[in-house]
Design a protein around this nucleic acid. Structure first.
Length: 135
DNA sequence: AACGTGACGAGTA
DNA sequence: ATACTCGCCACGT
């Protein structure tokens, strides 16, 4: 199996995993990376979404893969080269009921109530005395 | 073909 | 608590 094939398989696995994120929920790149069996490549997960096809004719495309539901482990919409992209992602999330707030530095923070799909410690748990391990 | 970049995250200092 | 470094590897130049 050539490396390019493995890469294609990786892309497909990532897209497939992202499709499993419930409507109105979000998760992290790291979680997706773990799900597809490559926990050390969260960055490549972002790359996959970046190169997600816009052609609705493709098997995986910008329309059937909820790319907007993937954010970084800090609970923030990853800022990228083109600011409008993050804004676009925030708008798309808000359109499905996700609450996004803007910090002083323009960081787009996602409300924790949608972290039902989140795997690990929440970004804002900030070591509260209470474990916060409700339910 | 080589080099730098980047939608990240964990480990160190 | 924050700042910096390293690993990862596909993509654009």
């Amino acid at each position: 199996m050539a490396r390019s094939d493995e890469a294609a398989a990786f892309f497909a696995a990532v897209y497939s995993a992202v499709q499993e994120i419930p409507y109105g929920k979000v998760t992290s790149y790291g979680h997706i990376a773990k799900l597809v069996g490559t926990p050390q490549r969260p960055r490549q997960v972002g790359l996959c979404l970046k190169h997600l096809s816009q052609d609705t004719d493709s098997h995986f495309n910008h329309d059937n893969v909820p790319w907007q539901r993937v954010i970084n482990s800090k609970g923030i919409i990853s800022p990228r080269s083109q600011p409008s992209g993050a804004q676009n992602q925030a708008a798309t999330l808000q359109a499905e009921g996700v609450v996004v707030s803007t910090g002083s530095l323009g960081e787009l923070m996602v409300d924790f109530s949608v972290y039902g799909w989140f795997p690990r410690t929440l970004p804002s748990e900030t070591g509260q005395s209470e474990e916060g391990d409700e339910d």
